[in-house]
Computed example of a mutant assay.
Amino acid sequence: MKNEQNLEQRLIEICERFKLKEKALNSLEEIITDGLRRDEYFLNGYTRSEVHTVFEEYRFTILKKYLEATIDTRIGLYIDNDMYVDNSEPIGYYTLEVDFNGKIVDDVFVLEKEKYNK
């Protein structure tokens, strides 16, 4: 158990040293701002004020078949909905992938739901 706690703490320290949460949130905000500037329906009909972002996790991905190992930072995109846990309905996510030196390798922006106006 102690080894697991030590490893987890060391991995968290790596993420904090590279400021991955902040990088991911800033990158996501740029994507949303640029997208809405080009297309008012960029968020699938949701307004920026309806969508809130939540840090979800760090994921360390090693032994990839074709790519180098990465540290993935995932930010969830949510809207208010009292039918869901914490009154937040997931509508998408953003993942920032960096190498083990903190250099950005790739990112992924996904919207899984569309707003339906009644």
Score class of each variant (00 low, 15 high):
Lys2Asp: 14
Lys2Glu: 15
Asn3Phe: 11
Asn3Lys: 14
Asn3Ser: 15
Glu4Ala: 14
Glu4His: 14
Gln5Trp: 12
Asn6Trp: 02
Gln9Glu: 14
Leu11Gly: 06
Ile12Tyr: 12
Ile14Met: 14
Arg17Val: 06
Arg17Phe: 07
Arg17Asn: 15
Lys19Gly: 09
Leu20Val: 08
Lys21His: 02
Glu22Ser: 08
Glu22Arg: 09
Lys23Cys: 06
Lys23Gln: 13
Ala24Gln: 04
Ala24Arg: 05
Leu25Lys: 10
Leu28Trp: 08
Leu28Asn: 06
Ile32His: 00
Ile32Cys: 03
Thr33Pro: 00
Thr33Phe: 08
Leu36Met: 11
Leu43Ile: 01
Leu43Asp: 00
Asn44Met: 11
Thr47Lys: 12
Thr47Phe: 11
Thr47Ile: 07
Ser49Leu: 09
Ser49Gln: 12
Glu50Pro: 03
Glu50Val: 04
Val54Lys: 12
Phe55Trp: 10
Phe55Cys: 09
Phe55Val: 08
Tyr58Trp: 13
Arg59Phe: 05
Phe60Trp: 10
Phe60Thr: 10
Thr61Asp: 14
Thr61Met: 13
Ile62Asn: 10
Ile62Gln: 10
Lys64Ala: 13
Tyr66Val: 08
Asp72Phe: 02
Thr73His: 08
Thr73Ala: 12
Ile75Ala: 05
Ile75Phe: 04
Leu77Ile: 03
Tyr78Lys: 01
Tyr78Phe: 13
Asn81Val: 03
Asn81Met: 02
Asp82His: 08
Asp82Leu: 08
Asp82Val: 11
Met83Pro: 00
Met83His: 10
Met83Cys: 08
Tyr84His: 13
Pro90Ile: 15
Ile91Val: 11
Gly92Trp: 01
Tyr93Gln: 03
Leu96Val: 00
Leu96Gln: 01
Leu96Trp: 03
Glu97Trp: 04
Phe100Ser: 06
Phe100Leu: 15
Asn101Leu: 14
Gly102Phe: 02
Asp106Pro: 00
Asp106Glu: 03
Val108Lys: 13
Val108Trp: 00
Val108Arg: 10
Val110Asn: 00
Val110Lys: 06
Leu111Gly: 04
Glu114Ile: 05
Tyr116Ala: 06
